[in-house]
Amino acid sequence: MMTYEVLVRGVDAIEEVATKEEVARVLCPVEEHDGPCEVPWGFSVGDDGELVLGIYASPEMAAEVAERVRQVVAGHQVVLAQAAAGRFEELEMQHRIEHGG
């Protein structure tokens, strides 16, 4: 398990809110649910119109999430990368708290 970033490139300010909502529904289809989400996640904004989705997951799950994101953000490049140092550190802690580890 480690922290990854799913970068969605070319998202302008007008698209940002709608794109975040689409991506959020990929990870959490039911907004108000009991218990933790399958994959701890959060958003940030990167450079030059990048929407950055942080996730804490296994390599296999990270690849699956990136593919699911690709399917909902057609027209935007989606790149999976290891998280930048210091970004999304809270996701590992969230996983530990929610999964008792």
Rank of each mutant, 00 (worst) to 15 (best):
V23Y: 10
W41T: 03
L27A: 09
A18E: 04
V11K: 10
S44M: 06
V72G: 11
E50G: 01
W41Y: 15
V30P: 01
V45D: 01
I55H: 09
V78I: 08
V65W: 07
E98G: 00
P36K: 00
F43H: 05
E50H: 07
V26S: 06
G54L: 01
Y4D: 06
G101Q: 08
S58V: 03
E89C: 07
V45M: 03
H33R: 15
G101R: 12
Q82N: 11
V39W: 05
K20Q: 15
G75Q: 12
V30Q: 03
G10A: 07
S58E: 14
V45P: 00
E60N: 09
G86R: 04
A13M: 10
M61D: 14
E22C: 05
A13H: 09
E98Y: 07
V65K: 12
V73D: 12
R96A: 00
G100K: 03
D48N: 09
I14A: 14
C37L: 00
D34V: 08
H33L: 07
L80R: 14
V30T: 05
Q94E: 15
A62W: 11
V72E: 09
A85C: 00
A57I: 09
V78M: 07
S44Q: 08
G46D: 06
D12G: 07
E15Y: 06
L51D: 13
E50P: 01
T3Q: 09
V65H: 05
G101W: 13
C28E: 14
V17Y: 05
R68M: 10
R96H: 05
D34F: 05
A74N: 09
Q82T: 13
A84I: 03
